[in-house]
Write a protein that binds this DNA or RNA. Structure first.
Lengths: 279, 279
DNA sequence: CTAAAACTCTCATGCCGCTTTAGAGTTTTT
DNA sequence: AAAAACTCTAAAGCGGCATGAGAGTTTTAG
């Protein structure tokens, strides 16, 4: 505290930094105390060293790595800082884009959970207006209804990997689904047509992107793929009984997958749906 | 590749994940292979386990920690996910705000470097229009011109710490400066009045925030605080010779500090300036 | 059926920018 | 002179993997 020298603690305090950080910086040679007692090995700093420490903290705040900072300070080359910063700028922009996606995904998920808690009980039939949706889809290569869940899993994987292959933003689907042609549905068959994931409205356009029109849908809720056949049948019966005219393809939509806690089973909350026309 | 079981490599491939990550997940109990050969210790997975792995990757993509994911999967509590996500949402928003600040700082710095490279040589006198600026300032507690650079360093530290104390976004100033009353300047004295850092236009308003009006300034460039006295004198003489009427307080502005590579000295690029009126 | 290729195992180490802890020594204050 | 406050070194820990060594196992090719 005397004359000119600052102990490591004092230096740390006035610079809002921790003592151990200062020691680390000494060790890696970022900033060395101007004097080190040879016997006690105590470090002593000079207040003029704040200039350098400021620079370090400033560059750190710009997201530079300690290694880079060291290089810059050693080389004294402003071109070097500039090239690092230009690169860093790109990085930051990417990070922001990712965070934006993440934020959207988090919000969707929270909503999805809310919906899950308030959703009707299994077997409930509703008639609801569903706004338009955008999907990223692929035709199913085989009718997975004829096989087990394994085939469905495979198709889903392929869909996901196609997203990755095409360098598209990953959706991290909690909202996947499958479609089936209206005709198959009306005949009481189960013939898968397409598998899809829901995407945001601003998802980049491509051949695999389709729009599902808004409209009134007759829906039935269930919680396992295993019951799809039975519930699809009930849905069809309901439409017939009430003379609803099926106006488009059948959709099996995963509303939420957050019941996946069981080790192996995709415990889901599903909504089977067909668009209906009231002439 | 036979019947049902997938080797770790196959599982990794279809899930776009690395083998070592799968091993890690096994170790920490996030997802265990459905069968482990007791002799060879080879891990084998079932494609149905994709459901769980999807959930894991999904939650990871939302920014959750592996520990949190594990808790969620073990508890099966959707409320838990929700509370984690709500917390995470706040985090992400903060991160984005920080990245925005960072991006702005990076851009400012790149500009500053550009300016540095194209700046006039030492001693050049210019008459330039300077747009309005916003500063966060504090009166200097003593006239640091009477003392050495140490006192200036101290004042600067206090200014910085006052930013931190008031929980204001840190500027990480590369643009600090000091002001002096017009009267002192005209008398040829050096009497510090305020010390400041430049802030963005959208910096939160407070008592310490002031606006420096735009206008024509007579400026002189230099690269060391040590020369301030001499160059300030030249500036004054120049104004007198040309009959420029000094219209406001004197400012000593640090344009860039990127010449700080020397261990101790604040090697700067400075611009002394006084606003002038052309009646 | 054998040899080679491809895969998998465990265990250890490294990354980044610190923080934390333990145990010993030094300075400052009372 | 004792007590309090500080500082030292050295090592380990964090998170989420990646990488590598050296040994063993499974699949493929001939």
């Amino acid at each position: 505290m005397k004359n000119e020298l600052l102990s490591i603690g004092e230096m740390a305090k006035i610079n809002n930094i921790s003592v151990s950080t200062l020691r680390l910086y000494d060790e890696i040679g970022l900033i060395k105390p101007c004097y080190t007692d040879k016997e006690s090995r105590y470090r002593y700093y000079n207040i003029r060293q704040n200039a350098r420490l400021d620079m370090i903290q400033y560059m750190k705040a710009l997201g530079m790595e300690l290694k880079e900072i060291k290089e810059v300070l050693e080389s004294g080359d402003t071109k070097l800082i500039e090239s690092i910063l230009i690169h860093r700028k790109k990085q930051v922009k990417e990070q922001m884009a990712n965070l934006n996606l993440q934020l959207a995904a988090i919000s969707r998920t929270i909503e999805s959970l809310e919906r899950y808690r308030k959703s009707p009980s299994i077997g409930t039939i509703t008639i609801e207006y569903i706004p338009h949706r955008k999907i990223y889809s692929m035709p199913t290569s085989i009718n997975f209804y004829d096989y087990g869940i394994e085939v469905y899993e495979n198709e889903l994987k392929e869909l996901k990997n196609s997203l990755i292959k095409h360098n598209l933003p990953q959706i991290y689907y909690c909202n996947a689904g499958t479609t089936m042609k209206k005709e198959s549905f009306l005949e009481g068959k189960l013939e898968s047509d397409e598998i899809f994931v829901l995407v945001d409205d601003d998802f980049p356009q491509s051949d695999s992107i389709k729009r599902i029109e808004s409209g009134m849908y007759v829906c039935i809720y269930l919680d396992s793929f295993d019951d799809e056949k039975e519930y699809a049948k009930r849905l069809l019966e309901y439409c017939r009984e009430n003379n609803y005219k099926v106006a488009g393809d059948y959709i099996c939509e995963v509303l939420t997958e957050f019941s996946v806690f069981d080790d192996e089973k995709r415990g889901m909350f599903l909504r089977l749906q067909v668009p209906v026309a009231f002439r």
